[in-house]
Amino acid sequence: MPSQPRERLWFVLPGVLIIVLVLLIPILAALGLSFFSYPLQRPDLGIHFIGLDNFKRLLADTTFMNSLWRSVQFTVGAVASEMIVGTILALLLKSHVWGKSFFKVAFMVPMMMVPVVVGVAWRLFLLPDFTPLGPIFQFLHIPFDTSKLLTDPGWAMFSVILADVWQWSPFVMIMMLANLQGIPDDVYEAAQMDGASRWKTFWTMTLPLVAPALLSVAVLRAMDAVRTFDLVYILTSGGPGTATEMVSVYNYKIAFSRYDMGYASAVSTAVMIVLAVVIFGALYMLSRGGKKR
């Protein structure tokens, strides 16, 4: 072979370089900036080294802690619902139904839509007093005040989760469908021969077979859900009050409405640390789960 190992590094260099430049260096910069005071709107104050002051402020910042907790609520709520809805859809589409390919394509549309537009669509759809759900609920005699959906703190979080489920359940569906199709038919034939019911086959055969895939799809989705920004920003922009202000939105607001760049970097650093702990914890558990099998 003409190309030597050293020369081959040139092939991966551009790709690696661009990632280092745009992603890794900024992370280090954020880490460094978190020890500085850097109010962008007051250039007269300049940039000062203030040691751990930002982090001290952070630990006492209840808004930050609450936003972190809301991110957890959102992520758990959305990902769990998406896993259930997506898996049900995949199971239905795997079985014998009419209009299969039509449904498959139609269900993919929400997933590919611009997240900003998903926010716009749900905002218009749920606007208090103007939501078409009001008349529908009235017609069905469901006593529910639909104006709560964006104005009541608890229901607002529900609405944001609902919109996320609307957009991302199809992703789980596609992934699970690919996995279900990978299960050889003779597994099912054998089960049928043994006289196992459909219900029992699902719990004892299908579910254990796709469990590793379920887990990895859930991890993928959780990683995306934690950093959800566009959807929340457009749908509720964190409101009512701070009821749906997740850590991504809070971080953004500190940086780009208060222009407090030092403190924003401290928030970013804290988020990175929390995420790293969670991700490595999850990976550790995943690898241990893999060994047991």
Binding site: V16, L23, P26, A30, V226, F256, M261, S265, S268
Partner: peptide, 20 residues
Amino acid sequence: LLLMTRMIPPVVVIVPIFLL
């Protein structure tokens, strides 16, 4: 390592990129 970079939340890198 490449896969790890996928996990970086965009909000974290946006401040330094913006400032630069």
